[in-house]
């Protein structure tokens, strides 16, 4: 399953500056493993203690994976995976 993954500015140090890269996998977890094999260190920026890091949002096509299985989200050939930094914060 080949997919295109959009990489946010903050993670482009792992992709030699590339805004989008190819990866493969049948689930999001597999796609992230494949990404990490080619772009070392990126997994640690996305996954913590076996779950998606709360500082990033990952979408498969238009769907936030938090609502579609998280790391188990199914990936189909030709899907677009988009990684964005969550924009959040506040006093507390």
């Amino acid at each position: 399953m080949a997919v295109t993954v959009s990489i946010p500015t903050i993670l482009r140090t792992h992709t030699a500056g590339e805004k989008s890269v190819e990866a493969a996998g049948a689930t999001l977890a597999e796609v992230i493993e494949d990404l990490d094999a080619n772009h070392g260190g990126i997994k640690a920026r996305l996954v913590k203690d076996g779950a998606l890091h709360r500082f990033v949002n990952i979408y498969v096509n238009d769907e936030d994976v938090r609502f579609s299985g998280g790391l188990d989200a199914k990936i189909a050939d030709g899907d677009n995976v988009t990684i964005l930094p969550a924009v959040a914060g506040g006093r507390r």
């Binding site: 946010p8 500082f55 930094p85 969550a86 959040a88 914060g89 006093r91 507390r92």
Partner: peptide
């Protein structure tokens, strides 16, 4: 620019703001 307000404290990034800050530029 990414902006937000603090409504009861000073205009200085909180620890939460810093941990979430994901746009280095």
């Amino acid at each position: 620019v990414i902006y937000h307000s603090h409504t009861a404290t000073e205009a200085y990034p909180s620890r939460t703001d810093v941990s979430y800050a994901g746009e280095p530029d």
